[in-house]
């Protein structure tokens, strides 16, 4: 559990507008972190500051790195809509990116080739980028971000502009990279976050409102309930009249909040059985990430 990145009190203020407001968090080496928030929450600005592109109004971004070394050499950055010089070929661009990031000139060519093959552009590497489709550009964007083997990979909405097939392919590439490097990526698509994340950062109006592992956040917000569907309203009423638990009911449904009452599925089923209630269904419900997102990010 070695710490790689420490962001403290990071803020960006444009005029009166606090785009990013005192963000503080740490990233552990070789973990994946999803930065989640609705559009306009400040995800791109936050990532741009970490990439060294935008100067923070306040606060610091500290990458654990050897002294006297430009931290940008250890960072790979993929913007949401990467723009390339259309008159360069993919291999020329990737080699330039590698050289600028300090890759040894003797291995630049082989590294660039390897990286382009890794992202699936092996056959297109000698074509001019101007002829590339959106999906190819996104993969080239990934290639230029990883060609110098950065310690920290910053990805801004890496898959949201892609079609389902392209998105699946890029997600698979990211999962492979996950083994080798630390990834921080922003997204507003929660399925992606659920699929590949060790840590979640929820951003709302520039403020970091939640920070934790997927399981801890789920536990905190999941709000589990046991929902019973009776065969009739009368049966539900009968259950209400004899039960000693705190309940909520509507028509033939009764829901039980188990968290403060030390009860689980077993107790509920036993109670239903003991008085032979006629039921259709008993269900254990937890909120999914999307509901948690709505709760955490959209509230207030």
């Amino acid at each position: 559990m070695t710490e790689l990145l420490r962001v403290s009190q990071l803020s960006k203020i444009y005029g009166d507008n606090k785009v990013v407001d005192s963000m503080t968090f740490e990233l552990v080496e070789k973990t994946s972190t999803a930065l989640i928030g609705p559009n306009g929450a400040g995800k791109t600005t936050a990532l741009s500051m970490m990439a060294g592109l935008v100067t923070p109004t306040e606060g610091t971004v500290l990458l654990k790195e050897e002294e006297n070394k430009d931290s940008r050499a250890s960072i790979g950055f993929l913007p949401q809509y990467p723009k390339f010089f259309p008159w360069l070929t993919a291999i020329e661009f990737t080699e330039m990116a590698a050289r600028l990031s300090g890759v040894d000139s003797r291995i630049v060519q082989s590294e660039a080739q390897k990286t382009l093959e890794f992202v699936g552009l092996g056959d297109a590497m000698k074509k001019r980028i101007g002829t590339f489709s959106g999906g190819m550009k996104q993969r080239l964007g990934l290639a230029q971000a990883v060609v110098h083997k950065p310690k920290l990979l910053l990805l801004d909405e890496p898959v949201s502009a892609l079609d389902p097939v392209g998105r699946r392919q890029v997600m698979n590439l990211l999962k492979e990279l996950q083994q080798q490097t630390t990834i921080l990526y922003s997204t507003h698509i929660l399925n992606d976050a659920e699929e590949m994340t060790d840590q979640l950062l929820f951003l709302r109006k520039g403020e970091l409102v939640e920070n934790g592992s997927l399981s801890s956040i789920k536990e905190k917000y999941a709000n589990p309930r046991i929902l019973i569907e009776f065969e009739s309203v009368e049966e539900a009423a009968r259950f209400l009249s004899i039960s000693t638990w705190t309940l909520a009911s509507k028509n033939n449904f009764v829901s039980i909040d188990p968290s403060h009452q030390q009860i689980g599925m077993t107790e509920v089923l036993a109670a239903l059985h003991a008085d032979s209630f006629r039921i259709r269904k008993v269900e254990w419900q937890t909120a999914n990430l999307e509901e948690i997102f709505m709760k955490v990010v959209m509230s207030s």
């Binding site: 430009d70 960072i75 913007p79 990467p82 723009k83 600028l100 990031s101």
Partner: peptide
């Protein structure tokens, strides 16, 4: 303006 500079500026240049 076109954004092509972005991928240069994020490098140790």
């Amino acid at each position: 303006k076109s954004g092509t500079a972005t991928l240069l500026y994020v490098r140790p240049m």
